[in-house]
Simulated scan of single mutants.
Amino acid sequence: MGQHFLLSKEARDLPLQKVMRMTEPGAYRWFKRARWPLTNGEPTCPECGNVRCYTLKRGGRFKCSFAECRKEFTVTSGTIFASRKLKFRQILAVIAMSANAAKGKAALQVARELGVQTKTAWHNLMKLREALAARREQMQLDGQVEIDGMYLAGHIRPENRKEDREDRRKIQSPKRLVVMAVRERRLTGQTLTRVTPSENSDCAWDMVRAHVSRKAHVYADEHLAYDELCGLNPLTRVNHSEAYQHGFGVSTNIIESFFSRVRRSYRGIHHRFSMKYLDWYAAELAWREDRRRVGNGGHVLEMLKRALAHPTSRNLCGYWQGNKPDDLVWTG
C-alpha cells in the first residue's frame, strides 16, 4: 500500500523548530524574498517600480533613487503587515504555527506557545485569513465541479424543564448562516466559498456565473437553490432522500469532505467561529483543503507571499481602536 502524503518526508520540509531557531536577519531575508521574488529579495519601490533603491541606516528602510519619486519604504510598507509590532521571526512563527495546523489554529493556543497577548495572536491570524480569502477574486473552476451548502452555528439552548422544551428542529435561529461552496473534483482542484444568510438561488447563480467555466459539468443535490443552474451549465442532480450516490460519480461527496473539515475546525479547534468573520474562516479552510498535498514549507511561503501581496487591511487596521469591518455575509 502506498504511503499517504502527510506521512512522507515532503510533507514536513519546514519543522517549527527550524523557524524558532531562525535569527532575526534570517527571518528578514524570508520577508524580502517573499515581497520581491522577481529580484531575489532586492528592494523595489512600491510607488514607481524602480529597482534601483538604496538602504538607509535607520530602521531597515529603503529609498527610491528615482529623482521624481524618492519614496521611503520598508519590506512591509503597504502590505497587510504594515505598522507591525512583532519581530519578523515572531510573525514567521505565527505563520508556521498556522500552516502546520490541518484545521486551523486557535489564537489562544498561538498566544500561549509564542508568549504574546491573545489579541496580538488573533489579530495576526485574522490578517492571514483575510489575505487568503482574497484569492477567491480571480478564481476560475473547470472540469467537474460540485456545489452545496452547509448550515452552521445558531445553537438553540433547550429549556431546563422538559415540559417547556420545544422541538428545536422546527426552530430557526437568527444567528444561523450558510457556507455555500463550489469545488473542483481534481486532486489539485480549487474550492470557492461564500457565506450567506440562507441557501438561496441568487447566490448559487452568481457563484457559478462568475467563477465556473461554461463548459464545466455541475453536480448538485435536489435543493431548490440549484434549479436555475441548468440555464448556465450542464447540471446533474443527486436525490439525497434516496441515496448519497446515484451510479458512478453522480454525487456531492467531494464537497461534503470539505464541509467535514469545516465542522471539525468549528467544534474541535475553535469550538465556535465568530459569525462576523465566518467568511474568512471558511476561505482559510478552503485554502487548506486545496493545498493538502503541499508540504508545510510551501504553506508557510505561500501564506507569507499572499500576505505581503495584500494591501493594508482596512478591516483590521485600528481594530482595537474601534474600526470594525463591515458585514462579510453575501446579500446579493
Rank of each mutant, 00 (worst) to 15 (best):
V110P: 04
A111H: 09
A111R: 09
G115T: 09
G115Y: 08
Q117F: 06
K119R: 13
K119Q: 12
K119P: 01
T120H: 06
A121G: 06
W122S: 07
W122H: 09
H123W: 12
N124G: 02
L125I: 01
L125N: 05
L125G: 04
M126P: 00
L132V: 14
L132G: 01
A133P: 06
A134T: 02
A134L: 13
A134I: 00
R136H: 13
R136N: 10
Q138F: 06
Q140L: 13
Q140S: 08
L141P: 04
G143D: 11
Q144R: 08
E146N: 03
E146V: 00
I147L: 15
Y151D: 02
L152H: 01
L152C: 02
A153S: 13
A153D: 14
G154H: 06
I156P: 04
R157D: 12
R157W: 07
P158I: 05
N160W: 13
K162D: 06
E163P: 01
D164E: 13
D164V: 01
D167T: 02
R168Q: 11
K170G: 04
I171E: 04
I171M: 06
I171N: 02
Q172R: 15
Q172A: 15
Q172I: 09
Q172K: 15
K175H: 11
R176Q: 14
V178D: 01
V179T: 08
V179W: 01
A181V: 10
A181M: 11
E184W: 11
R186Y: 11
R186A: 15
L187N: 07
L187C: 05
L187V: 11
G189V: 05
T193P: 07
R194W: 05
V195F: 07
T196G: 00
P197K: 08
P197R: 08
E199W: 00
S201Q: 06
D202Y: 10
C203E: 11
A204S: 14
R209L: 08
